[in-house]
Amino acid sequence: MCLAIPGKIITINNHDHLIKTAMVDFDGITKEVNLTYVPEAEPGDYVIVHVGFAISKLDEEAAKLTFSYLKEME
């Protein structure tokens, strides 16, 4: 139940600050996700989603660190 997975925001549905939601694409499956805790996320952003709530916006620059680490090792 602790599973949290990345998905891509397609559209923002609701702009009420308490129940801001978005349609998020998980590799072909689209679901409505609560964006209350990641209000800055916009269409095109990737978010980590857990039990219907986005808990973070993925940071592309930070993601590159893993790949520079892999390069360093070579």
Binding site: M1, C2, A4, N34, Y37, H50, V51, G52, F53, I55
Partner: peptide, 10 residues
């Protein structure tokens, strides 16, 4: 139920 991950949602 849950850890800190689930607490804000719950």
């Amino acid at each position: 139920v849950g850890f800190e991950t689930t607490a804000p949602a719950n």
